[in-house]
Design a protein around this nucleic acid. Structure first.
Length: 187
DNA sequence: ATCTCGATTGGCT
DNA sequence: GCCAATCGAGATG
């Protein structure tokens, strides 16, 4: 996807990322998954957002251009986010779950589980399955040939929404989006 | 379905 | 040094 795709309203990007394919290649091989669950995070009037507080090394990319990876660890798991909106307008989408498409053997090896459902059905699981860590922080998804997101029309689906998961103080608005009846959503 | 405990990092004092 | 944090796995009922 190109810059214009990412530099839009964060909830719109979160919804439109559903069904798209994320690709990551490193020395170990290629893994690929369809995005089935996302969450949108805004700026200062979104208490759940890291951008509601001061700029730090961890969250500063939220103010940068859209289409960059933003990665941090929470409870011993790496979280993969994609920045949204233009420069100086903070926003990011958390990728919460994938449906495995390619490299399932490699995902199994990295995860230590055989059950396909256990490979990428959560934000911490999917980074482990793909082999994504802090090393991949700040990658420009519109330019990289190792990590990128591509369009796909694999399936038709309805979009469900709910409140965001695991946040201590959510907004009234529901900002978690998922593919209805998909078996790989996190809950 | 619900709980409970372990895990790692970055930011702050 | 301390501690909170966008979680995961295993156990339990």
């Amino acid at each position: 996807m190109n810059r214009e795709f990412y530099e839009r309203d964060t909830a719109e990007v979160a919804k439109d990322l559903l069904g798209k394919i994320i690709n990551y290649r490193n020395r170990e091989g290629v893994t690929r998954g369809m995005i089935v669950e996302t969450e949108a995070y805004y700026g200062e009037n979104d208490p759940a957002s890291r951008a509601s507080r001061k700029k730090t090394n961890l969250n500063e990319l939220m103010w940068e251009q859209g289409g960059l990876t933003l990665i941090y660890m929470i409870h011993a798991h790496w979280m993969l986010n994609v920045t949204t909106e233009g420069r100086d307008i903070p926003g990011a989408v958390l990728i919460r779950a994938l449906e495995p498409v390619k490299g399932i053997g490699l995902m199994r090896k990295r995860r230590g589980f055989n059950d396909v459902k256990a490979l990428t059905s959560g934000p911490g699981k999917l980074t482990q399955a793909l082999g994504i860590t802090k090393e991949e922080h700040g990658i420009d998804l519109t330019k990289s040939n190792k990590l990128y997101i591509q369009n796909s029309k694999l399936i038709d689906f309805d979009i469900g929404k709910s409140h965001r998961i695991g946040v201590t103080e959510d907004l009234k608005r529901e900002l978690r989006f998922y593919i209805k009846e998909n078996e790989f959503i996190s809950r």
